[in-house]
Design a protein around this nucleic acid. Sequence first.
RNA 1: GGAGGGAUGGCCGAGCGGACGAUGGCGGGGGUCUUGAAAACCUCUGAGGCGCAAGCCUCCGUGGGUUCGAAUCCCACUCCCUCCGCCA
Length: 428
Amino acid sequence: MIDVRRLRTELDEVTAALARKGVDPAEVARAADLDARLRELTTRRDEQRARVNALSKEVGAAFRAGDRDRGEALKRESRAAGGQEAALAREADAVAAELRDLLLVLPNTPSPDAPDGAGAEGNVVVRTEGFDPAAYGEHQRVPHWEIGEQLGILDLERAVKISGSMFVMFRGLGATLNRALCQLALDRNADAFEEIRPPTLVTSDTLTATGQLPKFADEAYHVERDDLWAIPTAEVPLTSLARDEILDEADLPVRLMAYTPCYRREAGAAGRDTRGLLRSHEFDKVEILAYCTPRQGEEVHRELVERAVGTIDVLGLAWRLVDICAGDLGQSHHRQFDVEVYAPGCDQWLEVSSVSWFTDYQARRANIRYRPAGGGGTELVHTLNGSALAVPRVWAALVETHRQPDGSIALPEPLHPYLRGATAIPAP
RNA sequence: GGAGGGAUGGCCGAGCGGACGAUGGCGGGGGUCUUGAAAACCUCUGAGGCGCAAGCCUCCGUGGGUUCGAAUCCCACUCCCUCCGCCA
């Protein structure tokens, strides 16, 4: 959620900032109006409560003094005040609920540094490494689903038999490669990030804290009988790890990472990217995440980007960094860089990581605060996260990029420690 | 799944209808003493909302209820602990 106080002190700025994300100014005005009404009602309700409290004390005093008549008279007066208080409270609660519902769907304000733009076409490629379209040979222009079938390392047909369309299955060295990629990503970040193995089924509260609920309920798998949700990313449990807690500034930034499966219904994506591994309901991912102070936010964001890109780079893949424009930013996002990797076989740039800075938007929902070192009141942390490595798309780009003229796959050296001695996937 | 016991501030723990936002201890800040430190002593120390301020209000697991008044009584739920059962 954005800070309601900003609707009072800088309404015009917030309205203009949200307009860059395509938010109707009327919605922002409605929120500001509800907030004003709520404060007025709350003040009046509190005045009645103060009266009830004061009268109740007098009731007690009167009875202790043995003055029954005065006690009874005060009781009647207090009961009447209580009735008024209850009516005002009901009104205030209704307004508060309306305001909360609106704030839950109102997005975070974009960073002034994020480029202008209404949608994906406004995104700006800020860096490209290792990409030379002329340098790819014919043997690299084979899509990974064909390679996977030839080498017996991908079995999409049986995945469909087991679980339905858009589920995938790796076999043999393909499965080993999947796991090796995760382990590489974990090991490369273990210098600074604590490894977590969180639960992957979470409560509605947890899914609300990061912004998936209430707006994006259709995107997540819901286990109705137990009212639990399958996580779409480890960001969800890792952010809620510190929910309702107060951290010490000295401990910030807190850096966490987790390998988990991720589950996505892809409700709006039927028919898009249906071939191969480009989009699936379940995939493995290593996520890196940080809580920090507002001052540290920008620097930590840079660090996460460098780490995400570094792992792709040592795998010998071509990649580029995309600065996401205001209109294409997610609901909770203040600034976001996407890492895209080039897959020569399907001739596409594939998004393999979104490295995002949420400022205090998620922290306010999740109530994650810290005690400033210099004393004073508690403050909300900033949260940031990104994929250190999302397996299927990297797997696809890797298999296509490192395919040899004989049809075998040369496995990049940094993965060797995790492949039980294999250095290549042999040609059939 | 069954039977009991619990949930109070950063932590531990008292309170069980009115003067309780809550005794006490630990931890933390400041001070006295000391060459310095320790010890001792003094003092301060929960979170949030509204307000220029004085101040007022909310919060004792969550949600309802009883009452003039609820941390305290009643109901429901959630979570934790112990024992039994089941089980990887």
